[in-house]
């Protein structure tokens, strides 16, 4: 293995942050504070998670592994909720959607023997699944909010004709699920052509034969399709009802 990012190289690489900072100041983007905070958070979070993972991998305890997965899922749900501003119960909905999408996808991978039930495999994979599910749900929430605002009149008319809440919302729900899944499908189409994704790059970096590395990337493509579709469909079907009140009127 030839992995040699020492502290000096990392410090020198930090100069790259100055590029972003310089552009922000030069173009008066007002992002300088966000960039500094973002970089500091990334460093602190990654250092902590590095030591936590080292400890968890060494202990190799199933409960500790599950607790770590739970922590990842909760954070993913919390972030997805932020995109669902104005949608009541967005946190429990996101939590359930990410829990099920991560659980089912992870379960299939373990049962299929694609990954082993050991912390060093289960935790990184859970993180990848939950984060993609989180992005899909966040996009789906934003789409629901936008569409329920833009298509208010059409929804009212469907209700006035005696449609139930699902019939009144179905075109919006479908579009939101599509929006949530679109980035995963797009990246599945261009994988290997535009980018060598994280999993594959990581394995190649670590010296694994690229032909073996692609098998993992193919698995990742499958699991992300499952995770985003499950996450988006569960979140949308649970969230759309919250746009109506108890008398089945559009809020």
């Amino acid at each position: 293995m030839n992995l040699a990012v020492n502290n000096t190289s990392l410090f020198l690489a930090a100069m790259l942050v100055l590029v972003a900072l310089g552009i922000s100041l030069w173009q008066k983007l007002g992002l300088d504070k966000d960039i500094v905070v973002g970089v500091l958070r990334a460093i602190v979070q990654l250092v902590i998670v590095g030591y936590v993972l080292k400890y968890i991998f060494r202990i190799d305890n199933v409960w500790l592994t599950l607790a770590m997965i739970g922590f990842i899922i909760f954070n993913a749900a919390w972030n997805a909720k932020k995109r669902g501003a104005g949608i009541p119960h967005a946190l429990p909905i996101s939590l359930l959607a990410i829990l099920i999408s991560t659980g089912v996808t992870l379960g299939v991978l373990i049962l299929a023997g694609a990954i082993k039930l050991i912390p060093s495999q289960v935790i990184p994979i859970s993180g990848m699944i939950a984060s993609n599910s989180m992005v899909a749900i966040g996009l789906a929430y934003r789409s629901l909010n936008t569409q329920f605002r833009d298509q208010r009149q059409a929804v009212l008319e469907r209700l006035a004709l005696g449609a139930n809440l699902l019939d009144a919302s179905i075109t919006i729900v479908r579009e939101a699920i599509r929006t949530g899944m679109a980035p995963t499908i797009d990246s599945a189409k261009t994988v290997g052509l535009v980018s060598l994704p994280g999993m594959m790059s990581g394995l190649i970096f670590a010296g694994v034969d690229p032909v073996r590395a692609i098998k993992y990337q193919i698995m990742v493509t499958f699991m992300l399709l499952s995770a985003t579709s499950l996450g988006a469909i569960i979140a949308c079907y649970l969230a759309y009802r919250n746009f109506y009140n108890e008398r089945k009127q559009l809020k």
Binding site: Q153, E157, L159, A160, L161, G162, A163, N164, R247, K248
Partner: peptide, 14 residues
């Protein structure tokens, strides 16, 4: 009344 069933009897055209 269930509002859905009610609206099928009292129909509103915009």
């Amino acid at each position: 009344y269930d509002p859905i069933m009610y609206r099928r009897q009292v129909s509103y055209c915009f």
